[in-house]
């Protein structure tokens, strides 16, 4: 299953994307419990706070858009896990390929707790 996070907006208005392709058994054991607990069909229509990020999160066929301050609970878990997995992949690529400055594309964690 393809799981992706697209982050838009913020003061700088720069778009960032992260995506992972997850296969079994990792999908069933580690990802689906989080994905299933996200309220995909019950996303609150909150107005975003000025200059906060907007997130578009997708897992397979499911998709939801929510402002940074609503990325909490299972949403936050899903986003954090996606970013973390994408970073690990980036790290592996950087090791096998030309050496890039680590952390340049590393992202901050979203959401105000």
């Amino acid at each position: 299953m393809r799981i992706s996070v697209k982050r838009t907006g913020g003061f700088a208005g720069l778009t960032r994307r992260w995506a992972v392709e997850v296969g079994q058994p990792e999908l069933r054991d580690e990802w689906l419990p989080i994905i299933e607990s996200c309220p995909w069909d019950d996303v609150p229509q909150t107005q975003n706070q000025p200059d906060r990020y907007m997130y578009r999160i997708s897992a397979g066929e499911r998709e939801a858009s929510l402002p940074e301050q609503d990325v909490t609970g299972p949403w936050r878990q899903l986003v954090d896990r996606t970013l973390e997995s994408a970073r690990q992949e980036e790290g592996r690529r950087a090791e096998s390929g030309p050496k890039g400055p680590e952390g340049f594309l590393r992202d901050t964690d979203p959401g105000e707790r």
Binding site: W18, E90, A94, F104
Partner: peptide, 17 residues
Amino acid sequence: MFCSIVPPYLLRRLAQL
């Protein structure tokens, strides 16, 4: 698993940064 944010050309550029 793949990561769409860092295509190889970008990594090469990052390396020169």
